[in-house]
Design a binder for these strands. Structure first.
Lengths: 115, 115
DNA sequence: ACGAAGGTATGATGTCTCTCATACCTTCGT
DNA sequence: ACGAAGGTATGAGAGACATCATACCTTCGT
């Protein structure tokens, strides 16, 4: 009857295993301003976020592309929540696999303005 | 006579100031296997290295391209040493600007092989 | 002054990335 | 069953990137 499992009916989208993450892929995925801003946003509030709640300056289709890159690099996890998609940072996996990396990236400040 | 200054006659190649480094550029530059291997190699031995002493599986022209990307992202510093080029990691600059980032990247291990 | 060593510049080529518009699919509410 | 909301798929275009071959430039040694 299809109401027995109310949630997360396996989106059939690929998520790499924690132990298979490649630092090159993670770095390349983070090395893009749009994706970095998504990651910062996810990090700023705990738990899941629906994709629609993330401020984005690109179209829906482009956003889908960036979410995919983050997911396939192992940086985010996606699941379905009703008709929305929920995204969350794979913080524990990243911290275990690449200790300090995410924290260092999140701590990075913009360049100093010269007076 | 041209022998008065024996060294480093300013290669006229651009090096960004420490305070102007952008984490996006650094991450993107590190997010490439060839460049990451260069950085690992530089980190493994202190001080400068001549470019020729770095093991590379690409042609000279391609190597020049990668050195440039690393330099322009602020990851390496280049100077001339005779007819060779010396490259070094800007470790102090990176550590000050993005504390922990380089260490985390260098500490990253390859993915586990599943048995 | 010559030649070799070590890099750089240029241009070509193929691939990947980012972006969008459009059309579609799913799920929820009614 | 319908329509709206929220994403995805596909295809196209512009630009960036990685790679190479070739030709060139500098510096050192002789």
């Amino acid at each position: 009857m299809r109401g027995s499992r109310s949630y997360d009916r396996s989106v059939s989208s690929f998520h790499p295993d924690r132990d298979q993450l490649l630092v090159e892929h993670v770095l390349a995925a983070l090395g893009n301003p749009v994706r970095l801003s998504i990651v910062r946003e996810l990090a700023s509030s705990p738990g899941e976020r629906t994709c629609g709640s993330l401020p984005l300056e690109v179209t829906k289709a482009t956003a889908t592309h960036h979410w995919r890159v983050l997911r396939e690099a192992g940086i985010t996890r996606e699941s379905r929540a009703g008709r929305a998609k929920a995204v969350s940072l794979r913080r524990a996996d990243l911290d275990q696999r690449f200790p300090g990396l995410l924290d260092a990236v999140l701590a990075a400040t913009p360049p100093a303005r010269e007076p």
